[in-house]
Design a protein around this nucleic acid. Structure first.
Lengths: 111, 111
DNA sequence: TATGATGCCTACCGATTCTAGGTATCATCA
DNA sequence: TGATGATACCTAGAATCGGTAGGCATCATA
């Protein structure tokens, strides 16, 4: 819909969520905002993508969740990176770097 | 299966195929080899991914195909980038650059 | 003669993101 | 007061696309 918004590539969302949480505990809606803000409005995660992803990630033990009330007085579900999640973030970042490197090589090829 | 082989992210295969063909007409099997070689063995496209992708890409008019006999005397289906395919490659490369930039920004964030 | 590389293909699976809905609270503004 | 938009959670279903696993044929080589 948005004019210049790039759709995420499958496989990058988990890394972005984990990265957002590595900066501190946060609730779902806030994760979307943090990713949007950090990316200079370039990345917009849809709610319909985020919540199922958070569920998956929690099942895998990469984050833990608890309900709490935040400063505005509203209830929200706060997610926190686990030790295993931090490890996973490192792995995903390394994979991402390898992929970017590999694709860069292919793109540098000339006739 | 391969120990260090990175699975492709969804959305990158088309770009790689188009890029491989931008270096010159090639048959399917050769595209796999060219991508593997250009990426220093880091990217391995499976046949079961390639042929359906080539079909999709051909339907979209980004490549044209013809059967021919190559130097080894064997028959093969040769694919060639169309003008529209070249344009598409540029678009996909630009999208890729934007995504990499956006993700880089997110990853640079510090506590 | 059997194996592996080359060359094409298809059917189905699995994973993941998006679209499109739903619910509720709260602040703001007409 | 009533409507709207932002915040906050969720689900169902569609669509996409890469992988796995199979099939088939030819050719060179061991």
């Amino acid at each position: 819909m948005a004019k210049d918004k790039a759709d995420l590539l499958q496989g990058t969302l988990d890394m972005l969520i984990l990265k957002a949480l590595s900066l501190g505990e946060l609730h779902g809606y806030g994760i979307i905002q943090r990713i949007r803000q950090l990316s200079d409005e370039m990345l917009n995660v849809e709610q319909g993508s985020l919540y199922p992803a958070l569920y998956r990630i929690e099942q895998k033990g990469w984050v833990s969740a608890r309900w709490d009330i935040h400063e505005t007085g509203r209830e929200a579900k706060f997610y926190k990176l686990t030790r295993s999640g931090r490890k996973q973030l490192e792995n995903q970042e390394a994979s991402w770097d390898r992929l970017v490197l590999a694709i860069t090589k292919v793109r540098q090829a000339t006739t």
